[in-house]
Nucleic acid binder design. Structure first.
Length: 645
RNA sequence: GGCGGCGUAGCUUAGUUGGCUAGAGCGUCCGGUUCAUACCCGGAAGGUCGGUGGUUCGAGUCCACUCGCCGCUACCA
C-alpha cells in the first residue's frame, strides 16, 4: 500500500533568540512537503528540533543566573508552541540535549576515533590564543593570525580533529555523480570551486574553552563541538548508531534535508564526509532555499518592520500565511517581504478567488436548490473543459512538488480555481434558474461547481488543512466522501443530496490601506525589543580603568588615502598624529570613497601592535561605529595628536 | 582579487536541448455580469528579452566582449 518511505528534515534551530519568519518559512515548506508525501501514499518521517549546546547559550544562561538547560527549556517550549500555532506536523522533535542524542553522539565520536578518522591535536596547527582559534598553514601569513593579526604559535593545546581532508576526493566524485544531491544547481559550483578544489582542511571538532556540550567520551575535558553534535541529529533521531534495526533502517538515508542557503556548505561537505567516515549512506538531496528579505535589505530595526509570524497568523490565519510564503516566493531564490505584498496576495488569491468561489457556489445551491447538492443530469457546453482540467491538476501538482517548486504547484491549483470561476460566468446559473425548463441543466452546473470545489479542497490540503476542513463543512461532506488524493483525479466523487451550510467567509477581504496603517503602528514597539535583545547578546565582560588605560587613543588627521591594491575591503590611510605620520590599513572601503576621507580627524588606537594586512603594514586602527548597513567614523574636531581618554 | 549566479512588460516572474506571433499573475484602462467576500468574467495598452558584436536560414535561448546587481571566498586590529 505504501509507496515507500520519505524522510524529510529541517535544520535544528539555535534557541538563542526569537525565531523569525525565516525559520517559519523553512519549517512550513518542510511541513507542506511532508503532508503532501503522506497524502500521496508515502510512509513519512518529518524531523525538526533544536541545537542547544555551545558557548553562546551557556553565557546567555549565566547572565540570567540560570542553569543552561532550564534556560533553554523555556525557549524550546516557545518554539514548540510556535510550531503548534503553525500546525506543523513533525513526527520527531529532537533536542541535542536529549539523552539518546548525547549518548549516540558519543558513540559516533568513539567510532570515528577507533577508526582513526578522529585524532587528537598533536597536529602541527597554528593557534591564536586570544581568538581561541586554530589556523592552517595556508591561512597563517608571517606567523600572524589571519583573524587578529597577532602572532600565532604551534600549540600543544589539545583538540580533536576530524579527517575531513581524507574525504575530499570522494566528495568531489559524489557531486559529479549525483547532480541531484544539491539544489539549486547554482550552489554546486560554489561548493566545488570554493571548498573542494582548493582542498579541505581537517576540522577541529572539540573545545575546552566552554563546558556546555557533550563530553568527549574518553576525555571529559573536551566537549564535542557543533559540527558533530548538531549535524548528526538527522541520524541519531532515527537511532543511529545505537539502534540500527528500527527507524534508521527504515528511513535512512534522508530524502531531503531542507536548509537555508547559508548552511548549505555544512550539509553538503562536512555532514556527508562524516557519513562517509561512518560508512553510512549519504542523504539523497540537500535543498538550500533562498531568504526572505525585507525591503532595502536584511531585517533592519531602523526600517521598523520586523516580521513576527505570530502576529500575522493572529490577524490573517495560519493558512493565509502558509499559502503566502509558499506561493509568493520561488523556493530556491531570495524574495522580498512587505506587508503590502502579503495583503495583496491574500486578497487576490484567497479572498477573491478561492473564498469567493466557495461562497458564491454554496449561496447558489442554497438559493436555487434548497441547499441540497443536486444530481447532475443534463450535460452542456463547458462541462468537459472544466472536468478535464479538474482531474488533471493532481498529476501536475505532483510533478512540481517533487521539484520542491511550491509556488508553481499552488499555481496549478489556482488555474482550476480560476477556471471554475469562469465556468460560473459561462453557464450563468442565475439565468438558468429563471427558466423552469432548464432545471436539469442548472442542477448539473451546480453539481459541477461543488465537485470542482471538492477536488480543490483535496489538492490544497497539504498546504492548508484548516481551510480544507472548512470547505468540507460548507459542502456538507465528511472526510470519507472523496477526500483521498486519488479522489482528486476523478470527477464525480462528491455524493449528491448533501446539505450545504453557509458559513463565514473563508478568507475575509482585507482593507489594505487601513490594514497597512495598523501593521505599521504594531511594528514599532517590536523594534525596541529586538534592539535590546541584540544588545544583551553583544555585551562584553567588565574591565577596570587600568585595562582601559592600556589603550592609547589619539586624534589623527587623514592626510592621504588610497585603495588597497590586493583587497576589496581595505583602504590604506596615511594618518598624521601630532608630528608623526603613519600608515593604517582599515576595512572600510565598502563605506567610503578614498577622497572623502582626506582631511578628516579621526580617533586612532595608537599603540596597537603593527601588523601586515595583505602585504601592507598597518600601525594602529581607526575607530568607527557600525549599525546594520551604516558605518560612521569617530571624528574629533581638535588638533591632531590630541589624547583621547 | 578568485569562483559562481542573475539582468525578460510599472512590479513579481515563465520560457527544458535555438523555430515565439515572447507567456502568466498583480497593477492600469475599457467592457460584461449580478450568484458571490464592491467579487467574478472578457478585452486592451505596455517588452529594441541590460548593451555591443559574432555563429546560424533563424537567438531571450549558443559564443566573445561590455555594463549593472547579487552570492560564496580572501582581506576588514
Amino acid at each position: 500500500m505504501s509507496k515507500g518511505t520519505f524522510y524529510i528534515t529541517t535544520p535544528i534551530y539555535y534557541p538563542s533568540s526569537k525565531l523569525h519568519i525565516g525559520h517559519t518559512y523553512t519549517t512550513v515548506a518542510a511541513d507542506a512537503m511532508a503532508r503532501f508525501k503522506r497524502a500521496t501514499g508515502y510512509d513519512v518521517k518529518f524531523l525538526t528540533g533544536t541545537d542547544e549546546h555551545g558557548q553562546k547559550l551557556q553565557r546567555a544562561a549565566q547572565e540570567r543566573g540560570m542553569e543552561p538547560k532550564a534556560y533553554i527549556d523555556e525557549i524550546v517550549e516557545g518554539i514548540k508552541k510556535l510550531w503548534k500555532t503553525m500546525e506543523i506536523s513533525y513526527d520527531i522533535f529532537i533536542r541535542t540535549t536529549d539523552d539518546y542524542h548525547k549518548r549516540r553522539v558519543q558513540q559516533i565520536f568513539q567510532k570515528l576515533y577507533d577508526k582513526g578518522d578522529i585524532y587528537k591535536g598533536e597536529y602541527e596547527g597554528w593557534y591564536c590564543t586570544p581568538c581561541e582559534a586554530f589556523w592552517t598553514e595556508t591561512q597563517v601569513e608571517d606567523n600572524k593570525c589571519p583573524d587578529c593579526g597577532r602572532p600565532v604559535e604551534l600549540t600543544k593545546e589539545e583538540a580533536y580533529f576530524f579527517r575531513l581532508s581524507k574525504y575530499q576526493d570522494a566528495l568531489l566524485k559524489h557531486f559529479e555523480n549525483h547532480p541531484e544531491f544539491l539544489e539549486p544547481l547554482s550552489r554546486k559550483n560554489e561548493m566545488i570551486n570554493n571548498f573542494l578544489k582548493p582542498g579541505l582542511e581537517d576540522l577541529c571538532i572539540s573545545r575546552t574553552t566552554f563546558s556546555w556540550g557533550i563530553p568527549v567520551p574518553f576525555d571529559e575535558k573536551h566537549v564535542i563541538y557543533v559540527w558533530l553534535d548538531a549535524l548528526s541529529n538527522y541520524a541519531t533521531a532515527l537511532g543511529f548508531p545505537e539502534e540500527m534495526e528500527g527507524d534508521y533502517r527504515k528511513y535512512w538515508p534522508a530524502d531531503i534535508h531542507l536548509v537555508g542557503k547559508e548552511i548549505v556548505r555544512f550539509h553538503t561537505i562536512i555532514w556527508p564526509a562524516m557519513l562517509m567516515a561512518l560508512e553510512a549512506p549519504l542523504p539523497k538531496k540537500v535543498f538550500g532555499h533562498g531568504w526572505i528579505l525585507l525591503e532595502g535589505g536584511k531585517m533592519s530595526k531602523s526600517k521598523g518592520n520586523v516580521v513576527d509570524p505570530v502576529i500575522l497568523t493572529e490577524r490573517y490565519g495560519v493558512d493565509a500565511l502558509k499559502y503566502f510564503l509558499l506561493r509568493e516566493y520561488s523556493f530556491g531564490q531570495d524574495g522580498i517581504f512587505s506587508n503590502e505584498v502579503l495583503l495583496n496576495r491574500i486578497n487576490a488569491d484567497l479572498a477573491n478567488d478561492l473564498g469567493n468561489l466557495v461562497s458564491r457556489t454554496v449561496a447558489m445551491i442554497d438559493k436555487y436548490n434548497g441547499g441540497i447538492v443536486p444530481a447532475p443530469t443534463i450535460a452542456g457546453d463547458f462541462d468537459e473543459e472544466l472536468k478535464n482540467l479538474a482531474v488533471s491538476v493532481s498529476a501536475k501538482l505532483e510533478e512540481k512538488m517533487n521539484k520542491l517548486d511550491f509556488s508553481n504547484a499552488l499555481d496549478e491549483i489556482w488555474k482550476l480555481v480560476r477556471r471554475t470561476n469562469k465556468y460560473i460566468d459561462e453557464t450563468a446559473p442565475w439565468i438558468l434558474a429563471k427558466d423552469g425548463e432548464q432545471k436539469g441543466r442548472l442542477d448539473t452546473v451546480l453539481y459541477n461547481l461543488a465537485e470542482s470545489i471538492r477536488i480543490i479542497s483535496v489538492l490544497i490540503r497539504p498546504f492548508m488543512e484548516a481551510t480544507t476542513k472548512k470547505i468540507w463543512m460548507q459542502l456538507g461532506m465528511d472526510e470519507h466522501q472523496g477526500t483521498t488524493w486519488e479522489d482528486s483525479a476523478s470527477f464525480g466523487k462528491l455524493p449528491t443530496g448533501l446539505k450545504v451550510r453557509k458559513a463565514e467567509a473563508l478568507f475575509p477581504r482585507i482593507d489594505i490601506a487601513k490594514e497597512l496603517e495598523e501593521l505599521e503602528s504594531l511594528s514599532k514597539p517590536k523594534t525596541v525589543e529586538v534592539k535590546e535583545e541584540e544588545k544583551a547578546v553583544e555585551e562584553k565582560p567588565e574591565i577596570t580603568i587600568d585595562d582601559f588605560a592600556k589603550v592609547d587613543l589619539k586624534v589623527g588627521e587623514i592626510v592621504e588615502c588610497k585603495k588597497h591594491p590586493k583587497a576589496d575591503k581595505l583602504l590604506i590611510l596615511q594618518v598624521k598624529i601630532g608630528k608623526e605620520t603613519r600608515q593604517i590599513v582599515s576595512g572600510i572601503a565598502k563605506y567610503f570613497e578614498s577622497e572623502e576621507l582626506v582631511g578628516k580627524k579621526v580617533v586612532v588606537v595608537a599603540n596597537l601592535k603593527p601588523v601586515k594586512l595583505r602585504g601592507e603594514e598597518s600601525k594602529g586602527m581607526i575607530l568607527a561605529a557600525e549599525s546594520g548597513e551604516e558605518l560612521v567614523l569617530l571624528t574629533a574636531d581638535i588638533d591632531s595628536g590630541a589624547q583621547v581618554s
